[in-house]
């Protein structure tokens, strides 16, 4: 009985989360401009989408910026993580705190502060400024994905490679890079997805008619509901779904690779905690 209630509750919440998405997908195939009626199945809106130069142009901008910003942010961010790994003390703390600023700051503040910078530097707002902004908010995520991998790294392996006659660059390429690769790829994918998804920062750092998909959707939605947006949504939802599945397969593959060790560690932790908590409880009891 209770179990059925719990299942019901979970089902209701998930229905709430997915209903809007399903509605969008459904209406993207509706052969009627008004949403009050179901006019039969059609691919008409997808056809119109392919002819809408405004939407296609913004799709192109979105992809160009996502690819470039993710790639550049991954290079700068990975190098930064490798470098920062060697920094210690106050300097490192200050740098890390500044690195966290774009992650924690509300998007709107990041957006307007970058806009002020570009205007101050007399750069015309457009594709380039939007790209620079995207690189800026992507780098911290790359750094934060790579740093943990570097921390796990066994430095003795690198030293062993040097002792065996490898040049520092060769040792880096053959020893360090493969070890931190999972972190780099995660950072890259994260940066790519964040860039595709961004609206607020792009909105403030672009100008003169250059729009990405989010900006186009915003300006269309402001004028009311439009079936072509439904088609765009469906395609974007599918794209994100595919990306997510890829990322998750990667993560679970990696987890199973080091699964054994983790498992043992976890069992140890668990025992330890159990013991600790029992001790704590008995102490409280005695009191």
């Amino acid at each position: 009985m209770v179990r059925a209630l719990k299942k019901c509750y979970v089902a209701v919440i998930f229905a709430f989360l997915y209903a809007p998405i399903l509605v969008l997908i459904l209406y993207s195939f509706n052969n009627s401009r008004s949403r009050g009626t179901w006019g039969g199945f059609t691919l008409r809106w997808y056809g119109e989408l392919l002819q809408d130069r405004h939407i296609l142009g913004s799709l192109y901008n979105t992809i160009i910026i996502a690819v470039l910003s993710a790639a550049i942010a991954t290079v700068i961010g990975t190098a930064a993580a490798i470098g920062l790994n060697g920094w210690r003390g106050v300097q490192r703390k200050v740098i890390m705190n500044i690195t966290y600023i774009p992650v924690l700051n509300p998007d709107i503040v990041t957006g307007i502060s970058l806009m002020l910078l570009f205007v101050f530097a007399r750069m015309p707002l457009g594709l380039l400024t939007m790209l620079l902004a995207h690189i800026t908010f992507n780098i911290p995520y790359v750094i934060l994905s790579v740093l943990p991998k570097l921390k796990q790294l066994d430095t003795h392996l690198y030293e062993a490679a040097l002792d065996l006659g490898a040049t520092p660059w060769y040792a880096f390429k053959k020893v360090i890079l493969p070890e931190i690769m999972p972190g780099i790829i995660t950072g890259l994918l994260l940066a790519f997805t964040l860039s595709i998804d961004d609206f607020v920062i792009s909105f403030f750092t672009t100008g003169s008619g250059v729009a990405n998909l989010s900006i186009t959707i915003f300006s269309m939605a402001r004028r009311g509901v439009n079936p072509t947006i439904n088609a765009v949504s469906t395609l974007m939802f599918l794209a994100v779904l595919v990306l997510l599945v890829i990322v998750n397969l990667r993560v679970s593959k990696e987890n199973s690779r080091k699964g054994r060790r983790n498992h043992e560690q976890e069992a140890y932790d668990h025992r330890h905690r159990r013991f600790g908590s029992a001790r704590r409880l008995s102490r409280n009891h005695a009191r």
Partner: peptide, 15 residues
């Protein structure tokens, strides 16, 4: 759903 474009999620509710 969080990975779906934030604007589209909001727009869906308009529909």
């Amino acid at each position: 759903p969080m990975w779906m474009n934030f604007l589209l999620r909001t727009y869906a509710w308009m529909t």
